[in-house]
Design a protein around this nucleic acid. Structure first.
Length: 589
DNA sequence: GCCGTTTTCGGCCCGACTGTTTTCAGTCG
């Protein structure tokens, strides 16, 4: 059972509780929803966590739900869940996936119209809405009836299209809207917030915050965005649009003197905000996007904050980068003034995963631009060094002698490049396949033409965890193998990575002085941020690389830096912040 | 049901918007 399916099941349990008695079970409802969120966003499968005895590492999943999950994985069902859900018609649950449908609305419709078939219930509801019978129901009307039809239509179109956006796509969308917003003179400031500001690997909705003294005018301007599909909601301080591709844009506005609390609120994450507000509550303070309210005060005055920093400081916390606001210890660290100084883009001195157009006749895709062009770009980026790491020459299409010859020519070329210019030092690397048996796709004589090699998996992904771990570590054992690139093999929105025993991998890297890559390519972002954080506990070192196949992709470095930041990495944890000499020595080790 | 440098018992974020109401329930982020 996948994490997504398990999360859905827990949400259904919460919904069943809400239908039974929302007041009585209100904290169970919250607990099940929180547990569902924790499991949905976990990078490890629940089955694996149970196997590794690590189920208790998920925050929000306590002993009771842990026991239920054990039962679920073992037997395929949970008796306690079945008891909770048995009074609720099965047809209620599919409806919960439709926007604007909650437990109450779904239950009311299903019971009133006696809908029993959970396979057809969505179409059934749509048909009933079209006949006009829903409007007659108490609590419903003409408007809600037509909203139901629209919501179902959007659900249907969304099932195929509604994938989460990779960062540059979301960024571009946000920038388009912000450019439009700024055409209004009433928009004083406008920023993308939410998961985009936190630089999560994928983005659901785009959230934008605006500072203005004329809320109503800004909202009007926003809902007139020419490329909207339709207006989802429109109030006095928030509004929502649907744009092409089924994407939601949410706007929040506040006056400039309250903009700090709005930034804080709208950046999230949800769990960060809840934790911060619970902390404030204990101090007698109530937080919201409008500011800070004293609970014991006789008047309703709210203290206002122009900047986010002032807002956090007022609570006794240091300001913290949005990337770490996931309620994984950052609030405690901010309170005790022990936040780490995270690595920054300006710390990066070079890029080691670059595919040039050098005719290496590779096993996989080639780069588009010449080494010279990429070196020029590196200079513009202020880099001190770089490494070319094309894929190894194809094994099937060459004799060994041909491979030596290609790599010798490439070595000469790189030596020449180091002669004719001195500002960017160039390393001769390679991205070498780890073959299914763990050996590398180049032999030792070929490896001698290299300063070092990156190693990665590009074939036979379907191995079990133990075999794949052995394969990777065998490949990484080669003396020339120094960096494990895109370690999970995931492609966001396309495929999950393969499973590795991370504890074993991280221990090996630490002991054998191997580094792990944080691949900055936006549909990889691999190693994922959660595993970066985990690896740091073992003292593992990283390279942040772009995996560029074209010169303009070298600008993607910042996405990799964000992943490192989300994993709480400092400059000291990142190898390509080191001086050239130090790094050259490390490669020789 | 979860969780803990004020607690293993007694708490649990906060406000916006819509539609159907005439003061609120349901949903959302």
């Amino acid at each position: 059972m996948s994490n997504r399916e398990i999360a859905m099941l827990l949400k259904n349990v919460a919904a069943a509780y809400a239908i039974k008695n929302e007041q009585k079970y209100r904290f169970q409802i919250i607990a099940y929803q929180k547990a569902a969120d924790a499991i949905e966003s976990s990078t490890s499968e629940v089955g694996d966590l149970i196997q590794d005895n690590k189920l208790n590492t998920l925050s929000g999943v306590g002993s009771s739900i842990q026991a239920s999950l054990q039962e679920l994985i073992k037997t395929g069902k949970v008796k306690h869940f079945q008891e909770i859900m048995e009074d609720v018609p099965k047809a209620v649950f599919p409806l919960l996936n439709i926007p604007s449908f909650g437990p109450k609305k779904a239950y009311k419709l299903v019971t009133h119209f006696k809908l029993n078939n959970d396979k057809t219930v969505i179409e059934d509801i749509e048909k009933i809405a079209r006949t006009g019978k829903i409007a007659d129901l108490e609590g419903f009307g003409e408007k809600s009836q037509s909203e139901i039809v629209k919501a179902i239509a959007e659900f249907h179109s969304g099932t195929t299209k509604n994938v989460r956006m990779v960062l540059p796509f979301a960024q571009e969308l946000a920038e388009k809207i912000i450019t439009y917003l700024k055409q209004s003179p009433d928009v004083l400031e406008a920023y993308p917030l939410g998961s985009l500001r936190r630089q999560k690997s994928t983005i659901g909705d785009v959230d934008i915050a605006v500072a203005t003294n004329k809320s109503q005018a800004v909202i009007e301007h926003f809902v007139n965005y020419p490329y909207k599909e339709r207006v989802l909601e429109k109030g006095t301080v928030t509004a929502g649009l649907l744009v092409s591709g089924g994407k939601h844009i949410d706007l929040m506005v506040q006056p400039p003197d309250r903009f700090g609390s709005l930034l804080q609120h709208s950046t999230g994450s949800k769990q960060h905000n809840i934790h911060l507000r619970e902390y404030a509550l204990k101090k007698g303070l109530s937080l919201s996007e409008r500011g800070i309210k004293k609970l014991d005060a006789k008047t309703d005055t709210i203290e206002k904050f122009k900047t986010e920093e002032a807002f956090y400081n007022a609570l006794g916390l240091d300001w913290m980068p949005p990337e770490i606001r996931e309620d994984t210890g950052e609030i405690e660290a901010a309170l005790s003034h022990t936040l780490p100084k995270l690595v920054e883009l300006s710390d990066i001195k070079g890029d080691f995963h670059l595919h040039s157009s050098f005719p290496i006749e590779p096993s996989h895709d080639m780069g588009k631009d010449t080494m010279e062009i990429m070196i020029e770009k590196a200079k513009k980026l202020g880099y001190k060094y770089l490494g070319f790491s094309e894929h190894n020459p194809s094994l099937s299409k060459h004799t060994k002698e041909q491979i030596y010859s290609i790599l010798a020519k490439r070595r000469e070329k790189i030596e020449h490049l180091n002669m004719v210019q001195k500002s960017v030092r160039v390393f001769s690397l390679l991205e070498t396949d780890i073959l299914p048996n763990g050996s590398l796709a180049i032999d030792d004589k070929a490896a001698a033409y290299l300063d070092a090699t990156l190693v990665s998996i590009h074939s036979v992904f379907g191995m079990d965890k133990k075999t794949m771990t052995k394969r990777v570590l065998t490949g990484l054992s080669h003396p020339k193998a120094k960096i494990l690139t895109h370690p999970t093999g995931r492609l966001l929105n396309q495929r999950n990575g393969y499973e590795l025993n991370w504890e074993e991998v991280f221990l090996f890297c630490k002991e054998q002085s191997k580094a792990v890559e944080i691949n900055a390519f936006p549909n990889r972002l691999d190693l994922p941020d959660e595993l970066v954080r985990e690896a740091l506990k073992y003292g593992v070192k990283f390279f942040i690389d772009t995996d560029s196949h074209a010169v303009e992709q070298m600008d993607m470095m910042r996405y990799g830096v964000s992943v490192a930041q989300r994993g709480w990495a400092t400059k000291d944890d990142i190898m390509n912040t080191l001086e050239y000499n130090v790094l050259a020595e490390w490669f020789k080790k």
